[in-house]
Each structure stands twice: as structure tokens, then as C-alpha cells.
Amino acid sequence: MSKSLVEWAKGGDRPPIVAAAAWKGGDGKSTLAYEVAYQLGATLADFDWDKGGASGSWGFRPELRVRAPMLEAFEKGKTPTPLRGRRKPDLIPSHPDFGLNQPPPDRVADALEQWVRELDSPLVADTHPGGCDSTYGVLQPADVVLVPAVFADKSLNALEGMLEELTDYPLYVIPYMVKSPPARMRKRLRDMTTRFGIPVGPAVSYYSWIPTRSRRMAISSEPVSKQAAPFVQQIDRVAAGVMNYGA
């Protein structure tokens, strides 16, 4: 297993696996995973079967497709062929039926190890909110687990539960959708991450235009709009943090 992307670039035994997980929905996992995958030149594997996941953002519509790459990959034990698009990451899309047909965690972990070796490129896996079989399976082989931390009471409650449960995983907390958080919330996140010894990455601000954005290409794809430049700069820093995680 590679300890970091830097080491992998120097000749590690397999490309790294990055997971994006949170025990609460709507905290920005999919957007974060999408942009980081694009920045790292990674394949994005979407394990979130809900419509609001990364596959929908990418433009994948399962109702128009005959094949379901994610389901077939687990049925046949083969590495799926990622979908390719311009100005967006390669995608292994999810399927609405995946929620009911989740393989056990160990099988998901083995499959990810196989996929990342055969694809020979880093893999970013977006997960379904909360702890479920596929999410636990994704977390097992992950070299870094991106955890968006939103400064809201419910989100921090969920995060605290997640850090307690997954304290031995390589978690990387990213303060996300940040807009002038009060001191008590900053202190709460600081206390939490210190207590569990979890590293905190660079913060990503709140951008009101992102939730209403209708374009499917990655925000950080060139040419970057003037409006998006500050966001892309922050995502660059997150990607750099992921590259150097554990180094």
C-alpha cells in the first residue's frame, strides 16, 4: 500500500485510494470528491446510490443506460470501465439499485484494491452518508479519508460520532462550506480533532453559487472562471494536502 501520492509517484506498489465520507448528508462529500478526483487525475467511483450523488453531477442518468457498471462489476468480479468526459473526472457510476444490493464490506474493499491496480490510476471513492456496508468497505483500503466538517451543530454532532467510531482510519478533516464560524464551533472542532488525533486540512469556504450551479464539468477544470478562482485555489490546497498525507 502506498503511504502517499508522492510515494506512489516515486514507484509505490499501487495507486492510492482516497475516500470521501461523512456521517451526515449534505455536507459536501460529493462536490469535494468530484473536484479532488479531477485535481488528482483520479477515477471517481461513486458508491452513493441517491440521485444527489456525484454520478448525477457528472451527467450519468441510469434510466437511459442499459448497463449498470457498478452492479455488474460486483456481479462478475471484473473491473468496470470508467466513463470518460471532457473537463470532468473519469467515473464509475452508481446505480439506484446499489443500495439494496450492497456487497459486504470485505468484498467492496477487495474490489477497490483490484480496480485501482488494474486501472493503474488513483481512485477517489464517494460514499453514501452514514455507516453502511459499502461505506465501511470503501474505508478499509482507503489511504486517505476526506471528511468534510461543516460548522453547524448537527453536522458537528454527526462528525463527533464518526470520529469516535473511525478514529483508527486515516481521516483527514476538511473544514467545509465555511462562512465566519463562531469561536465556540471552531473550538469544538479543534477539541474533537485534538482528542482523536485527526489532522485538519485547509478550509474551503462557502460559495452560494455552487448549490445552484447547473454545469456538469468540474469547477476546477481549465479555464477557471473568475468567480470560481478562490474555490479552485482552496481545492488545490486540499489536493496538495491529500498528496502529502502521511508523508
Partner: peptide, 17 residues
């Protein structure tokens, strides 16, 4: 290790104050 986002946020808050 990349800079700690919480340090940045604390600095920003101090600047605002």
C-alpha cells in the same frame, strides 16, 4: 502536512476582531 485549516480560521477571526 498541509496548513491546518482551523489555524487559518482562527487567524481570520482574529483579523476581523
Amino acid at each position: 502536512m498541509a496548513p491546518d485549516g482551523l489555524d487559518d480560521l482562527d487567524q481570520e477571526a482574529e483579523g476581523r476582531r
